[in-house]
Write a protein that binds this DNA or RNA. Structure first.
Lengths: 82, 82
DNA sequence: TTTCATTTGTCCGTATGTATT
DNA sequence: AAATACATACGGACAAATGAA
């Protein structure tokens, strides 16, 4: 899944959407560890701040829970299909 | 202290004035660390660029010294009551 | 116990684009 | 046209906590 550099949709929003779709598709189960911020930076080519902003969107939507020094996890209370 | 969204005084100037008054009142001592840019963004609701512009005013007036990656401090040479 | 790499968090610096006044 | 303001995006430095070796 790729970020469209030329889209009018902000890149952090694009990344958040991509991850949300993959979470809702069950690619990661509730409680699963998501790729680290650095990993996402490498995979997307986005800046760290931009990746963090994307994860912030998913935290606010309740899809993700982040634990400092550990990582970001799919919300254990997330119910696939919601 | 609040920013007046409808004032004809630029918001960056309003914020600069507010911080200058507080500095001159001794709320922060010379050498003290001021609130971070992000904190000021949160507290004022202004954009980051606007907050930075306000701090720029205070740097030019000599009230504030900014150290990259560290923060903005009350000029150690500032003499309250000037 | 100590060291080290990993990871998130918190910052500042800079630039670009857009919209409004 | 110019100043103001916001949103977005990238880059970099550094701190703090965790866990593994």
């Amino acid at each position: 899944v790729e970020i469209d550099q030329w889209s009018r949709v902000p890149r952090y929003q694009q990344l958040a959407d991509i991850l949300r779709v993959r979470i809702e598709a069950g690619e990661w189960a509730p409680g699963d560890l998501l790729p680290s911020e650095n990993r996402l930076v490498q995979e997307t080519g986005l800046a760290k701040n931009t990746v963090r902003q994307a994860l912030g969107v998913l935290r606010e939507s309740g899809h993700v829970v982040t634990i400092p020094t550990r990582g970001s996890f799919v919300n254990p209370d997330f119910r696939p299909g919601e």
